[in-house]
């Protein structure tokens, strides 16, 4: 029994990695091979799919659009959440606990609920098909999340730190920027990561609020048929590339995430 102890984790990991492997496998095949034969690895190995994505603006613009609104959203979410989380962690005010919980409930509603009102509102404001529209729409679930995570990290900083800074002569804004924010960089990193990820993977609102100019990669990627028929190899390559930004961001915050889990806020 003990000798087989490695077996179950291995099977589990293989199961987890199988779809990713299959995606990579497909991305190096031609569409004909994918549809025509079943093979565990590419027989006619090709980089044409990747080449097409990096040279065709309709493809690479998808990545640029996605990255643009995701970065804008992350910046807005963290910036807006910092003072809010500070208030929740440091002050007691009427209904603070209810408000804090209400923030969380925003994450419970499916984005589809908001698709129609957002579409109408953004069209009326002439923000339809802009990066900022998607970035703002994603704030709906990212700001509450950011407040929730940051509040945990901020409450871990003793209130006496604030007081010491005031006694030393720091004004509140100077204290906040020079001392407080550097004290919670780990928390900000973790928060930014989650905002990035949730905005990156969200498809419905991004698709609803854009048509051409700000069309996200996920929207381009999920159209299965085009004028030249099925382009499965190309879609697989696009999918493989979509995983990369998340992997990069995870690598940067890998040490901080554990801390976030320890605080119970991630």
């Amino acid at each position: 029994m003990r000798r087989l102890g490695w077996l179950i984790p291995t099977i589990y990991i293989i199961f987890l990695l199988l779809p990713i492997y299959w995606l990579l496998n497909m991305s190096f095949k031609t569409t004909n091979e994918i549809l025509g034969t079943f093979s565990l690895w590419p027989i006619e190995f090709t980089l044409a799919n990747y080449k097409k994505i990096f040279t065709d603006p309709t493809w690479y613009n998808g990545y640029i659009n996605s990255l643009t609104y995701v970065v804008i959203n992350t910046v807005i979410s963290v910036t807006a959440a910092l003072p809010a989380a500070y208030a929740f962690s440091r002050y007691r005010f009427l209904g603070d606990k209810h408000l804090f919980f209400w923030l969380l409930t925003n994450r419970m509603a499916p984005p589809a609920v908001f698709a129609l009102p957002f579409f109408q509102l953004y069209s009326a404001m002439e923000l339809f098909d802009t990066h900022i529209a998607v970035a703002l729409a994603h704030c709906l679930f990212n700001i509450p999340l950011a407040v929730w995570i940051l509040e945990g990290f901020m409450s871990g900083v003793p209130k006496e730190l604030d007081e010491t800074a005031y006694i030393d002569g720091y004004s509140f804004p100077r204290f906040f920027v020079k001392i407080f924010i550097p004290s919670i960089t780990a928390g900000i990193g973790v928060t930014a990561f989650f905002c990035f990820m949730f905005s990156w993977v969200e498809l419905l609102l991004a698709k609803t609020l854009t048509s051409v100019v700000a069309k996200p990669i996920a929207a381009t990627m999920t159209r299965t048929a085009s004028t030249s028929g099925y382009e499965l190899g190309l879609l697989a390559a696009a999918g493989a590339l979509t995983i990369i930004p998340g992997a990069i961001v995870i690598w940067f915050v890998r040490n901080y995430i554990a801390k976030g889990f320890a605080l119970g806020r991630v």
Binding site: P158, L161, E163, Y166, I167, Y170, P182, S183
Partner: peptide, 20 residues
């Protein structure tokens, strides 16, 4: 205000600016 008083304080917990 605190900032304008010429006081200094040391707490029971060791309070220092962790990033400096």
């Amino acid at each position: 205000s605190v900032q304008k008083r010429k006081v200094a304080m040391v707490y029971q917990q060791f309070i220092n600016y962790p990033s400096m």
